[in-house]
């Protein structure tokens, strides 16, 4: 099946089985293995990427559903020597250990910061009529779709707060 994907600012033409998920398209077909497969069921968040600016689980998205979409993966956020502020903050705060959930955490947090800026409320939001303010509670709530078994959670929250705050 022919699909045209705009990934990290480049056009990729994919000719693949209709069953190929966006995650496997990235990992198996396009050589973008920064996006991780932790569960393939939308339960861990390791495969989080941005599709048209919003965070999605790439494992629950078929590649052919993304025809024409703009996709940003961890490779598109920054690279060694030119890291995004959030990527740098993850290093400074030790927001990872094994590193396997890390691309998903960072992609998720990148979109989450936009969601807060856009005023989207969450379960942790105290006042729905006031502007949403980033806080550790908001971040913990909004990042709960991204599991980290090494459990660097407090460090991840610190990293996001540094950039968001």
């Amino acid at each position: 099946m022919q699909t045209e994907l705009f990934i990290n600012g480049r056009v990729h033409r994919l000719d693949a089985d209709a069953r190929v998920t966006l995650l496997d398209a990235l990992r198996h077909h396009l050589g973008l293995t920064g996006t991780k497969k932790g569960c393939d069921h939308g339960q861990c968040g390791a495969c989080t990427v941005l599709v048209d600016g919003r965070r999605v689980n790439a494992c629950l998205t078929l590649a052919c559903m993304c025809d024409g979409a703009e996709i940003t993966t961890i490779e598109g956020l920054g690279e060694p020597g030119a890291l995004s502020p959030l990527q740098s903050a993850f290093i400074a705060h030790d927001g990872f250990q094994c590193g396997y959930c890390t691309p998903g955490q960072i992609c998720s947090a990148t979109a989450m910061m936009d969601e807060i800026a856009a005023g989207w409320p969450s379960h942790a939001t105290e006042d729905l009529n006031a502007p949403v303010r980033p806080s550790p509670e908001e971040i913990r709530e909004r990042m709960s779709g991204n599991l980290c078994r090494c459990a660097c959670y407090p460090n991840i929250v610190d990293a996001i707060m540094e950039v968001q705050g």
């Binding site: 996006t35 990527q87 740098s88 290093i91 030790d94």
Partner: peptide, 21 residues
């Protein structure tokens, strides 16, 4: 000291078992 491999892990360039082609 920051992790030696940190820049690779935060940019998705650290390659795990299932990432060679």
């Amino acid at each position: 000291v920051d992790r030696l491999e940190g820049p690779l892990k935060v940019s998705g360039l650290a390659t795990y078992a299932s990432e060679a082609r």
